[in-house]
């Protein structure tokens, strides 16, 4: 039974209604957002379910997950902390800000903190260059901007979140399914 369909019948109907009936594939991205909202990444099963709903192959759904950086195919920290270090932000100290955070969290960009709570990521321009340094948090599929940051402000926020989210569960409890292809984090493969 299609769990996604069972869980969100109305939502899925609404999504499908956006596109012409013979263009169900268009619903792949919104459905991926929906599935990712559940556990913070898209499982193999979810890909199969989305394929079923939209009438495409699981591979076609997976390809979309692989291409877009905000879709994840494996579980990471509860909070993904995405710091923009792109051109304009770099000019306003974003790289130094990131380095400081990394040191405090004891994790390099792309890594998850020891407690499994925070995955720190370096991302490209977030269209808020006038308020650098800034980061975006991704929790489940909820994205939120945090502008004009200092390391202290960010760490305070993280501590408050940790308390709010009960500090647990640290890592998503969903089982890790083995993906046949692994997602490249920087779009520039060099294994």
């Amino acid at each position: 039974m299609n769990q996604l369909l069972k869980k969100y019948p109305e939502e899925i109907k609404r999504i499908l209604a956006k596109y012409p009936t013979e263009q169900k594939q268009a619903a792949v991205m919104p459905l991926l957002h929906l599935a990712q909202g559940e556990i913070g990444f898209v499982s193999r099963t979810a890909m199969q379910e989305i394929a079923e709903i939209t009438g495409v192959t699981t591979t076609e759904v997976a390809s979309v997950v692989g291409f877009y950086t905000l879709f994840h195919d494996a579980p990471e920290g509860k909070i993904r902390l995405q710091v923009c270090t792109d051109v304009a932000c770099d000019l306003r100290g974003a790289k130094e800000y990131l380095a400081n955070l990394c040191q405090q969290l004891d994790a390099k960009p792309g890594e998850t903190s020891m407690d499994g709570f925070i995955t720190i990521e370096e991302v490209k321009c977030l269209a808020a260059c006038d308020r650098a340094p800034l980061f975006q948090s991704q929790i489940g599929n909820e994205l939120e901007y945090h502008e004009n940051q200092t390391p202290t402000r960010t760490m305070d926020w993280l501590r408050s979140m940790s308390a709010a989210l009960n500090g647990t569960p640290l890592r998503s409890s969903a089982s890790i399914e083995e993906a046949p292809a692994t997602k490249s984090t920087d779009g520039g493969g060099n294994e």
Partner: peptide, 21 residues
Amino acid sequence: HVGAGAYICGEETALLESIEG
């Protein structure tokens, strides 16, 4: 229709592909 992190989708034909899933 919400994208998912890809600058190229600002290019109009890539954007159309992206809407098409």
